[in-house]
Each structure stands twice: as C-alpha cells, then as structure tokens.
Design a binder for these strands. Sequence first.
DNA 1: CTAGGGTTAG
Length: 684
Amino acid sequence: MRTLGTKKHKFTAFTFSSTLTKPQIHVISKAITLNPIAVSKHFRFITYFSFCSSNTFPSISIPTNPIPIDLPNPRTFSILLNQRPKLSPLQQIHAQVVTQALSSDASLTASLIHCYLCAKNHPNARILFDHYPSPSPPIKLWNVMIRAYSKMQNSQEPIHLFLRMLTLDGPMQVVPDEYTFTFVITSCSHQISLIYGEIVHGMVVKSGFESNLYVGNSVINMYSVFARMEDARKVFNQMSERDVFSWTSLLGGYAKHGEMDRACELFDMMPVRNDVSWAVMISGFLGCGRYTEALTFFRNMLCDDRVNPNEAVLVCVLSACAHLGALDQGNWIHLYIDKIGIRQSSNISTALIDMYAKCGRIDCASRVFNGICKRDVLSFTSMISGLSYHGLGKDALRVFYQMLDENVMPNEITILGVLNGCSHSGLVEEGSSILANMESLWGIAPKIEHYGCYIDLLGRAGYLERALEVVKTMPMEPDIVIWRALLSASRIHHNVNLGEQIISHIGQLKSSDHHGGEVLLSNLYASLGRWERVTEMRKLMVDRRSESSPGCSWIEINGLVHEFRVADQLHPQIVEIRNKLNEILKRLSQIGYSANTMQVSFDLNEEEKEQAVAWHSEKLAIAFGLMSTEPGTLIRIVKNLRTCEDCHSALKAISQVYGREIVVRDRSRFHTFIEGDCSCKDFW
DNA sequence: CTAGGGTTAG
C-alpha cells in the first residue's frame, strides 16, 4: 500500500493480484482525475499484474481468439474500447491502461478520450488530453478534442484549442490537417463566429485544403449558415469535385434565409438528391410559412421511389399540418408512420401530439401521449400547451403535476404552457403560486415571457391594478409585449384610464422597441374613437413598413387546404362564396345579429366599416365550409391572427342558425361554437 | 470527418 495525491487529497493505491474491485476502480479513477501524472508514475513500477478474465468486464464480451488475454497489449485495449464501453467498465480499462504504462500510446489515448466524451462528456477526456505525456499531443488527439467541443453548441472551446495548437513551436509544433479544418469550420458555423470562420477559410486556402471535398463542404455550409450566399456559391463553383453534401449545404443556405425560389431552382438542378435534400426544402417552406407548399413537396417526395421520408421530414410535415389545421392529412401521415414502422421516436410523438392538439383533436393528442412509454420534457410540454389553448387549464395542471411525479424536469417553455393554461381558465391562484415558486422548485428564473403570461392571466381575470403592480415591481424593464398584454386586458375590461396610462408608457420606450405594438395601439385608439391618433399610427406604420401581417384563414375540405385572405379575390369560387356569405349575413340579421365594428381601425363611416369586417378571412372560410360540406358536419377553421369581436359573434350566431359545430383555432386558443355559445366564454 | 427537424408567449 502506498499513498499518493496532493496533501488535500490522499488516496491509497493498491497492488493488484488479478482483478480490480469496484472500490479500487473508484479510488484509482478519482486519483487519475486529481493527479494523473503521479498516478501513472506510480503504476509504472507495479511489476506483477495478470490481466483479468472476462468476469471483470461483465458488460463487454472479450474476444477470445486470436487475442492473448493473459498479457494485455495496446491491441487488446483498443478492441475493448472499440465496443464503446459505458462509464464503469471504461474506468476499469483506463485504470488498466495506466497501470500497463501505456499512457503515451496515441491511438489508445484517442480511443479513451473518445469513449469518455461519449459517456456524457466525462471530464476525464479533457484531463487525458491536457496531461498527455510530452512533447505535445499528436494532431489526431487535437482533432478528437476539437470535434467533441464542436458538437456542443455555443462553446468557444474548439477555437481556443485551435489557436493554442497554432502557437506551439519547435519540437512541440503540430500542423493542422484536413480533419482539423473540417471540425474548426463546422464549429464556426455552430456558434456565431463568422469572423473566425473567414480567418480559418483564409488558412484553408493558403494550405491548399480547399480542394478537399470535406473541407470545401464545411466552408460552403459555414457561409450558408451566415447567409453569405455569394461566398458559398463561389466556393461551390470552384470545387473540382462535388457531392450531395455540397449541393444540400448550398440548398440549405437559400432555404433557411427565405430564398425559396433560388432553392427550388437549385433543387431542380441537383444531380443527386437524398432524404436530407428533401428535408431541407420542406423545412424551408415551413420556416417562411408556406405550409401548403411544404405538403406539396412531401407528396412529390412520396412519388420518388429513390428516397424515403425520414424522421426530420415527418416532423416537418406534421408541423405544417398543425399550422394549417389539416387534420385529414395529419391523420394520413400518422397512419403512414405506423405503417412504415419508424420506431416511435420522441420527436415523432411530440409532433403528433402537437398536430392533433392544433387540429382541434385534443382527444387524439391524449391518446398518442398516453401511448408513449417514456415521456420526456418535450412530449409533456406539447401536451400541456395543447390542453392550455383548448381552455383546459385544470387538465394542463394535472398533466404538469403528473410530469413532476415522473421526475421529468420542466423547462421554461413547459412553465409558459402551464401559465398560459391558467390564463385561459382563470386559475389566478394556481398561476401565481407557480410563478412565485418556479425558481426555488425547478431552478428556472422567471423571464420576461413568464411575466408576460402572468400579467395576461391577471389582466384577463380583471385584476388590472394587480397586473400593473407586477409590471412595476418585476425585476426587468417592461417591453412592448408586456404593455401589449396589459393593453389588451384594459381593452377587454374597457378601462380607458389604464389604456391611456399604458399609451404614455409605450411612448417613453425607445422607438426601436415599438415594433409590433402599433396595431394594438391603433386598435385601442379606434375603440376610444380617437381617429386623429389612429390615422397618425397608420401613417407611422406605413412609413416604417411594419404593416401587420394580413389576416389569413385556412379550411381543409376533402384533404385539400383552402386559403383565404381578407377581401380575398384569389379563390376560384370566390363569387359563389361571396354570394353565400351575403345570404348567411342576411339570415343572421333575422335573429338579431348586427355587425360589431368596434375593432375596425380605419376612420370609415359605419357602412364602410360593416363591409370591412364582412370580408374578414374567417367569414369567407366559414361560407366556403358551409357550402362545401354536408349539413350537420363539423367545420374546422384555422386563423393566423386573433378572431375579432364581430367574427366571434357571427360564428356564435352561425352555429345556432345552421346547427353546426364550428371549431376555430386563432392565434391564442381554440373556440368551439355550439348552438350559439363559445367554449371560451367570451374571454380570449 | 461534411448537410436537415419540433414544443411557447404577443
């Protein structure tokens, strides 16, 4: 027995007869962590050591032939390490490597580091690297480390390591190779450092590695990530050899930065396409809100028998269905997923839950959710959020507590979902207690978004003073979103005083922070009848080109999504639809419905205002729905903005007059209209 | 060694 380690940490090292026991392994690996050099020096002098038989490595099968297992050599270890052992056998192997004086074997060390990195980035990886016996780690080890760090987002470490490597001199000098450049440039595109990326690109050109396929691809990708498409294109054009990766990286650059037309062009030119190329296109359409085109591309992909949709593609198309409320197509994709038997991944389940919830089928969402064997934060979060915007706050809370019972830690989005559920169901006390305790219970400090939700909760429930108090006492400066939540609360409860107060607060914000507040502000002025300010706001909005996104509604009929915009002229059946709408409005007026023009922002006369609300996109969609479906069929509509008061009361009346159940999803929640009433109880 | 994905609020 000998003692080693620093004064602070004393460890007893053992002399071994045959195998290491668990406590011995523990002590040795602790010692390696704290003082690797002392440990390795110590173990080099242990003379007798016979390598263990298979019972030391219960989870690994040791090849018996032709490797001699009585006397371990580097090859024995490297075969063991290639089986990617878990942490505890790994530490045993590590201990053995050290005791066999093999610490300076470069490829063994590389394998050990690799395994430690796989084992949740265990700190021993870095320790092995930092304490590599002189003169300096070979390039292979640098590459392994740089790659490992480049896999973690937002780490500066790859660049730091690379810079450190370049400063080595004389006998220590290490020259970067094509692997180094590939990893470093990839890490520049993972984090936000275009400047380093450009510098390293310069070095690539100088070193002549630009012609290397892998290096070139990573440069193309780097410029594509930063939307520097001319540069990406230049590198692409100069490459002597290109593969699917080169094409798809460039494609992704255009697709992710909203240049879908260029992307389409490129996509048609590609000599080879694989599932990722299709995924890039589909997610590109998704990213810029062109959901119907995302689905069209998916259908085309299914016709191409050289490729099969992968998980990413399916997640994207489910999300497109969710945005459109395309239940029929979502259902079809669910069946397809079951048929091709993609293993029920967490991502797919989450996307399915989200799709069903947003298509108004919270029952199907629950069924998917209950069928998952191990639920994670994401599936819980999408279930909770789904229940929330269905106005089922109590159920959202129930699932949230179930999640805590199953020891799944919530993230900040989960909490937002729960708060939102409280907000739509008026659960003031529950919401207050979650906000007050979230930091101490789950270690999540409330961000401004959480306060936004909470203020919305108080405001909707009518506690306007309490909401204002929160705004004044919360630890951060209120932004436009916060004021908007208060503003819409004061509008719901017709509190003119508070509205004016808020307007003066908004006026004090820096003008750059105004973005997105103009619409609500001008709507409030409109409801107060202050037309001169409304006109002013409108002018301001046009000047800043921050015109609000136009109202848009979707309805799915026979598996096809129809899109309507305000005062739409584009739909092929628009004349019929308008006639139908006029007929509907006439029938509604017989039971006492009249246009509610409170929320029209323009200074128009009453008749003009009535016209303005009459052509709202959801009215066009409902007219189309009524004329294209059998009497009694449920109608589902999705709208991209909040439903206005006039459309809300019109829909209530329609559900009564036509005896239809109508489900509308607007920007903030679901409304189910049955026999003249809405599930939101007129709070939205 | 290199390319692609979802959940929230307003």
